[in-house]
Amino acid sequence: MEEMMQPGWEHLVDSVRSGNTSFEKVFGQDFFSYLHENPERSAGFNQAMSRATESTAAVLPEAFDFARFATIADVGGGDGTLLAAVLREYPSANGILHDTEDGLAQAPETLRRHGLVDRCTLAPGDFFASVPEGADVYLIKSILHDWSDQQCVEILAHCRQVLPADGRVLIIEPVLPEVVDPRSVGLYLGDLNMLVNWGGRERTRQEFDEVCRQAGLEILSVVPLGGPGFCLIEAKAIALGVA
């Protein structure tokens, strides 16, 4: 991971001044295109994301009541670490795991290891084009901070298009304080890392409100989830005709 992430930081000043990612300047292509052309690096990245998700996977099933949902989709869910934790805790639910082919590469083994092959469907695809239909709740963890506001609106709008009236979108991301807090220095370093390597950003509650609103969603609650500033953001569809 450091071999991919560190070179961009050498051009931090350029990124801050221009708003452009340094990763593309160093490697000549965006982060995910680079992973696609380097399978070993892609596998290492997937493994790192799986490990980073373990702490959230340990607390999410108790932090939100999934009991009334029959089908749970994880958008950009990688190897399925998070979705597997929810499905194990809620045995009556089925799952849909959505990511690129590269992102899903290790998912069959995760599902097999947890005995979930028969309860979880793999749905390869591009969340900028669409997300799978048929779920009652859509999980999106550590995805939106990779992208610009407009790209986040696109992803969330695709969730909104297939969301049932009583469904939910659950966003799991760090949430920045509205006023800079020196005790949250790690969150701001993460914000810079998103800029340097992905072109994304961390967001405040108000900024999440805005991208959700533009996508036709309304935030109901924001609950601290543990880990480096992670929160569980629960959103529902705004009724048609309601501004």
Rank of each mutant, 00 (worst) to 15 (best):
E24S: 15
G95S: 06
R119S: 03
V196K: 00
E3N: 12
D14R: 13
E10K: 08
A52R: 06
W198Q: 14
M4I: 14
E202K: 07
W147Y: 10
I238T: 03
G76V: 00
V59D: 05
A235R: 04
D166V: 02
G95E: 02
A129I: 14
L139R: 00
V196A: 11
Q214E: 11
V117N: 01
V222H: 13
G28Q: 08
Q47D: 11
E154S: 05
L192I: 10
D102M: 13
G44E: 05
G77C: 09
R213E: 11
N20A: 14
R112D: 12
L116N: 04
V211W: 00
N20Y: 04
W147G: 02
S142W: 10
E133Y: 07
I155H: 02
A165N: 13
A67Y: 03
A243M: 12
S130Q: 12
S55P: 10
G77H: 00
G76S: 07
K236E: 14
I233D: 02
V162N: 08
A165V: 12
P224L: 12
L144C: 15
L176H: 10
L139G: 04
Y34C: 02
D99K: 08
L192F: 15
N38C: 03
L87I: 04
S148V: 14
G8E: 06
F69G: 01
A107R: 00
N46G: 01
A84E: 03
V185E: 11
L195V: 06
E24W: 00
L116F: 13
L82A: 06
V242K: 15
R112T: 06
E62R: 15
I72P: 00
G8P: 05
A85N: 11
L97H: 05
V169A: 10
G19A: 13
F27Y: 15
L192W: 03
P7N: 06
T71W: 00
W198T: 12
C231W: 05
D146I: 10
V162G: 06
R112A: 14
A239I: 10
E210Q: 04
E133V: 14
G134F: 05
R119Y: 15
T53S: 14
C159Q: 05
A165D: 14
M1E: 11
E109Y: 09
A215F: 08
I219V: 15
G125K: 00
L163C: 01
A93W: 00
P124A: 09
L83E: 08
L192H: 11
F230H: 03
F127V: 05
I72R: 06
A58T: 14
E2S: 07
L35A: 02
P39W: 03
H36A: 15
G241H: 04
S92Q: 15
R113P: 00
A235D: 10
A123V: 11
E2M: 01
A157C: 10
V162R: 02
V175C: 05
S142V: 09
R213P: 02
G28W: 05
V137N: 03
D65E: 10
T100Q: 05
